[in-house]
Design a protein around this nucleic acid. Sequence first.
DNA 1: ACCATGTCTTAAGGTACCTTAATTTTTTTC
DNA 2: GAAAAAAATTAAGGTACCTTAAGACATGGT
Lengths: 190, 190
Amino acid sequence: MEDGILKNISKHILLNDEERSLFNSLLSCKTLPKKTLVLQADQDCRYLSYVSSGALRSYYVDREGRESTIMFAIADWWITDMYCYLNRKPAMMHIETIEKSTIFQLSRANFDQLLEAVPKFEKFFRIMMQNAYTREQLRVMENLSLTAEERYHSFVMKYPQIVRQVTKKQIASYLGITPEFLSTLKKPEI
Amino acid sequence: MEDGILKNISKHILLNDEERSLFNSLLSCKTLPKKTLVLQADQDCRYLSYVSSGALRSYYVDREGRESTIMFAIADWWITDMYCYLNRKPAMMHIETIEKSTIFQLSRANFDQLLEAVPKFEKFFRIMMQNAYTREQLRVMENLSLTAEERYHSFVMKYPQIVRQVTKKQIASYLGITPEFLSTLKKPEI
DNA sequence: ACCATGTCTTAAGGTACCTTAATTTTTTTC
DNA sequence: GAAAAAAATTAAGGTACCTTAAGACATGGT
């Protein structure tokens, strides 16, 4: 099995062979073509997905049909509708592949089992949630205090690889502006 | 020692007497008057604070001197500049009391010691970070897809107690609008 | 290679929200 | 309990960003 995921985890906790193989046994691997829905709003969000290669995005569709991109996930990122995954609620978001992608999925039942069997994973997920929290909080801060142009510039500086893998339209919907308006902004050098 | 904080923790993990008293020994208690700065931007953010009574807010001040409220913390909430607390970076935010408040503080060193000594706390903080993450993500979603009026309505529904304890000006700066504009919106019934 | 579909760009007119400023109301301070 | 300070409201003029529309440019499927 691919081991980028175990490398990712080993940055934060040390696992023995037995724990590694238990972890691997709880994952399922999928390779999906471009534009495949991994999760639909209103469905049960059963999986937490690790992106091994490719790119995915989660997005919210409001009553008027407008899309807001909640997050992008490229290689080595995890993605799900976390609130609904953890609380067994119908999904609020959609998740789809942006390009051909290979992902490893951890079901909710296996997530619970993993935490029971190897409590060290509490630390791993604590750190993962910490990072996710502080990242979202910084995003809120930027949304409140920066102009659209500054937010775009900040995004390009922070995520140059994502900029290469997704469309401007998708970036605009992440920043909360229209693609037309993004198009009028001065482009920063990458 | 006040035990609202242990009650809060007991919702998620079970502690024996020894663990409880270790936890208590790692905290320090402070009672602060209204409008007291608990953290200044650029300082080292040394504490994670649990609010026993009163109300605090964290806010970011941009170059033009504009304030954006990042979060409110009333009784039973935790507050800090999480990114800077965890990563030993100079604080980005200010934190101040909105009214006379009693707080319990956990220093970074004691936080590390607690996690070492009682690994069960990894689970507690994992859940705390999870909740913080999903809350912030929902806020991002609302900022992207709702109008100012809808966000205000949602805030009032979600946090009626906070509405009673803070000014409209502070709520406006949490929502990313001016107090003048908030004042023109139709007020929902509480 | 071609057609279809979607993305990117430009531009004109519109709106949600901002700025400034003045008045009223509430809260704080001595 | 009066004076001072801060919050809340109202209103007029301004701007950042939106909507619609149309043409240029990519990209993907057969």
